[in-house]
């Protein structure tokens, strides 16, 4: 199995007529994702790569079951689009859009929590379960995605979209593969951080280990460490920590919106310490991840 999505997941794309969304639709269909409709207000009645376009989410959800939506609309319209999906009863919403103010993200997440919906992102590339489906731009063209992502045992979570592919490519080369890869987003506030996705991986029999990509800023690595210990997780976790140079440069923002060293807890040194305390190995280089996972799997027996 995978988490979040399978080949049966029905998907819609909000903002389907946009430049990036058109490409994403083509790539998703080629990969075998069930994209059943798209939404662009005022463009209802058209088609994008054979996918019918509607004016509202409700126009689709009133007729068919919609499991997931990808939101790819400009920042000024994103909150409205996400609210629309939540109100229409969609339970998985992948927000690709970048540069959404924190206050608005918090509002989306708060409403999603109230309605039992899950938001992935914002500022993410989406979710990919090898051999099942890809929801969002993660992995790019279907043929490229098949090169980098293969079915396997590792659950991947990454604050960087590009590094999700890099890590999965390394796991593929090592023959480990992935159960599901989630680009969780690079913002300071995101719908689902590591600790919130862990219960899903924990319950998924295909997943036998976890690899994460992390950065300076925020407390989500410490929160993952706490979750792992408190729940006595069966899954070994290996982390990669980028941006170590930033420890010497407090107050400067690099990389993603959430990547800034404002206090001691934001530094990589501190985060690595928290992770290590919870028995999470931290790789020095991306290419060290597979061997660390194999080691942990071997000792776990």
């Amino acid at each position: 199995m995978s988490i979040l999505i399978t080949r049966n997941t029905t998907v819609i794309i909000q903002g389907i007529t946009g430049r990036e969304a058109v490409t994403m639709t083509r790539e998703g269909l080629d990969y075998g994702t069930r994209i059943i409709g798209g939404v662009t207000p005022g463009r209802g009645g058209r088609e994008v790569h054979g996918v019918p376009v509607y004016d509202t989410v409700e126009a689709i959800s009133s007729k068919s079951r919609v499991d997931a939506s990808v939101v790819s609309v400009p920042p000024a319209f994103t909150r409205d689009a996400v609210f629309e999906a939540i109100e229409a009863g969609v339970k998985l919403i992948v927000v690709v859009t970048e540069n959404i103010p924190r206050g608005q993200v918090a509002q989306m997440v708060e409403l999603a929590d109230q309605r039992g919906a899950r938001i992935i992102g914002p500022n993410c590339l989406g979710v990919l379960s090898p051999g099942e489906a890809k929801v969002g731009g993660l992995g790019g063209r279907a043929e490229d995605a098949r090169k980098a992502f293969t079915k396997g045992v590792v659950g991947v979570m990454s604050r960087s979209g590009g590094m999700t592919t890099e890590i999965c490519n390394t796991l593929t080369a090592a023959g480990l593969g992935q159960s599901t890869a989630v680009s969780i987003g690079g913002d300071a506030i995101i719908g689902q951080a590591y600790a919130e996705l862990m219960p899903l991986f924990e319950a998924d029999p295909q997943t036998q280990a976890i690899a994460i990509y992390s950065e300076p800023g925020g407390r989500m690595e410490a929160d993952l460490a706490r979750w792992k210990v408190e729940n006595d997780s069966r899954l070994p976790v290996v982390a990669f920590m980028a941006g170590r140079f930033m420890d010497e440069m407090p107050g400067m923002r690099f990389g993603h919106a959430g990547t800034i060293v404002e206090g001691k807890a934001d530094t990589t040194v501190e985060k690595i310490e928290r992770l290590n305390e919870a028995g999470i190995a931290v790789a020095e280089r991306i290419e060290d991840i597979p061997a660390l996972i194999e080691q942990q799997l071997a000792t776990a027996g």
Partner: peptide, 15 residues
């Protein structure tokens, strides 16, 4: 270098 996460990773690697 790029992109967000890749740049952080590569900058570390160069140093």
């Amino acid at each position: 270098i790029g992109a967000g996460g890749g740049s952080l990773t590569l900058f570390d690697a160069v140093r």
